Each structure stands twice: as C-alpha cells, then as structure tokens.
Simulated assay, not measured.
Amino acid sequence: MAGDTKTKIKNYQTAPFDSCFPNQNQTRNCWQNYLDFHRCEKAVTAKGGDVPVCEWYLCVYKSLCPISWVAAWDDCRAEGMFPGKI
C-alpha cells in the first residue's frame, strides 16, 4: 500500500476528483488540503515520524491553490494569526 502511494505521488499531475467537493469551485478543497497537510505534518513530527507521509496533501493543495493564497496563509501561520485550526 505504501508503495502504491509513493507511485501515485511520483506520477502526480493534478488533483483527482474528490466526491466531497463535487462542484467546479475548488476553493474549499484547496483550503481543506492545506489544513490537512499542516495537521499531518504536525502530528507526524510530534511522533518523530517521517514527514513525506504527508506529501499527498502537499501535492493536492499546490495544484489547487493560488500561490498568493498559500503565501498569505504561510505568513499568517508564522505570525500566529492563522484562522484555521491546525
């Protein structure tokens, strides 16, 4: 199973269809994958694990989210003013 995930990440081109976000507007999908990546990264790091487990979320949010949004969210997280729960 882990090998299958690594193969999917290696061959990744764009976000696949997610039935949780069936509409054309993918803003919420972008937001959710950004949060999921940082939650995963936080949890894995706390347990002393390997962060590449979270790469799927990273690939998805990078393909869905505008760079300016990600930059703004990263700045907010650095300042401690991020509105999402990570």
Rank of each mutant, 00 (worst) to 15 (best):
G48H: 06
G49Q: 13
D18I: 10
G3I: 15
Y34T: 02
N29G: 03
F17C: 15
C65H: 00
P22D: 08
L64H: 00
K42N: 12
R28S: 05
M81W: 12
C20R: 06
N11V: 03
F37V: 05
K8L: 09
C20P: 00
Q13E: 13
L58W: 03
Q32E: 15
K8T: 11
C59G: 07
S19K: 08
P66V: 01
G80F: 07
L35C: 10
T14V: 01
P83Q: 03
I86C: 10
T7S: 13
R28G: 03
R28D: 09
I67Y: 00
Q13C: 13
N33P: 01
F82G: 06
Y34F: 12
S68F: 07
G49C: 10
S68W: 09
V70W: 04
Q32M: 14
D50L: 02
I67V: 11
F37C: 04
S68N: 13
D36E: 13
C20G: 12
S68Q: 14
V44F: 09
T45R: 05
V44H: 04
L35N: 08
F21L: 05
A46V: 02
P22V: 09
W56S: 04
G80P: 01
V51Q: 01
G48R: 04
T14H: 06
R77L: 14
F37R: 01
R28V: 04
D75I: 14
A43K: 03
S63G: 11
Q13V: 13
A2I: 14
P83V: 08
T27N: 04
S19D: 06
N25E: 13
V44S: 12
T5I: 13
G3W: 14
M1F: 12
T7Q: 15
Q32C: 15
L58A: 05
F37G: 00
A15Y: 05
K6M: 13
A43H: 03
T45I: 05
G3P: 01
L58C: 04
T5C: 14
R39K: 10
I67P: 00
N11A: 09
A71F: 07
C59L: 11
L35Y: 08
V53G: 09
F17G: 03
C65Q: 01
T45M: 11
K62I: 05
S63W: 04
A2Q: 15
E41I: 03
C59Q: 13
T14N: 06
Y34E: 02
M81R: 14
L58I: 01
R28C: 08
N29F: 15
T27E: 11
G84A: 13
K62W: 06
P52H: 11
F21Y: 15
N33M: 08
R39L: 06
G49K: 08
V70S: 00
Q32V: 10
D75G: 06
F82H: 15
C65K: 01
N29A: 14
D36W: 15
T45W: 06
A2R: 10
F82A: 14
V44N: 02
Y57V: 02
C40W: 04
R28H: 04
G49P: 09
P83F: 11
F82Q: 09
C65Y: 09
C76V: 09
C65G: 02
